[in-house]
Design a binder for these strands. Structure first.
Lengths: 154, 154
DNA sequence: CCCAATATGACAATATGTTGTCAAATAGGA
DNA sequence: TCCTATTTGACAACATATTGTCATATTGGG
């Protein structure tokens, strides 16, 4: 009844979306637990993670694209991180306004602490699921994301 | 480098999480477009969808569990929906405080309008992805969600 | 080179969601 | 039944993210 008009695939897409909301909720809750009693919140940790993982220094605008958030949301979090000494804004030789975000030693310490919790947490979860299925899910989410964005352009 | 210490599966779980954030962002943006120029926002549409799809009248607390949000977040949205005439709160014979949420004709009309946009949108996306892969992704998200919540209890 | 389109940071207003707390209602075991 | 634990709605404070707008910087086509 609910899916009348949906093709089989369309119904599956819709079901995936319906499944993704509680998944996202559980994920956020897990993020809160992983950052508990540290100097970071889940949101700040996520931004810091992108910076710490990046191959090179990134601008705020670029971080926002990687994360799928707005520029302004990331900017606010980045300002908080800078205020607390976890990152610094470095001059960008290619752009006067778009400064580059660099992790401080303190930021790196905080990131590593949470990573030391995140790794066993992820490993424990992974024992319960097929790696091949995880990989399919990764590809599906990445592809659907791209399709949704492309669809927007049309 | 980033995934040192992760098992193969643990790295895949982490990659899935990293993929899920931009996916969620794209999803929210799509929700905004689907509800554009209607009397609903994406968040209100999501709550209304749960109510409209449910087999029977649900309480706010139950809706929050279905959606993976807090009770309070859903309560605020539900109060907005009631104020705008999309839902009503009906007496619950089994619980004096926990009223049941019912869709009004106006709420149903708004839901159906957005549904008429959502169906072709989902169908179009689905033509680009294997249904079997979508189904795997649905199962993975559902299972991981459960695992994350169970892990919390321990 | 020049200029229009685009990207970026800053700022404000608002929407959305969380935690914490409280009192009332309910449920379940002793 | 009684009593404790849990559930629920209400309210408040706050964190997080969005849209809209503006001025400045950059880019790319003509």
């Amino acid at each position: 009844m609910v899916y009348r008009g949906h093709s089989e695939g369309g119904a599956a897409v819709t079901q995936l979306i319906l499944a993704s909301f509680p998944f996202h909720g559980a994920l956020m809750a897990a993020g809160e637990r992983l950052t508990k009693s540290t100097s970071l919140t889940a949101a700040r940790w996520q931004v810091l993670s992108v910076v710490a993982r990046a191959e090179r220094l990134e601008t705020v605008a670029n971080i926002s694209r990687i994360m799928g958030l707005t520029r302004q949301a990331v900017q606010r979090i980045a300002d908080d991180l800078e205020k607390h000494g976890f990152i610094t804004f470095e001059p960008n030789p290619h752009h006067k306004r778009a400064q580059l975000v660099a992790v401080t030693p303190e930021g790196l310490r905080a990131f590593e602490l949470i990573k030391s919790r995140q790794i066993p947490w992820a490993n424990a979860l992974a024992t319960q699921i097929d790696v091949s299925e995880l990989k399919v899910a990764i590809e599906v989410l990445a592809k659907l994301k791209t399709l949704m964005i492309d669809q927007f352009g049309e």
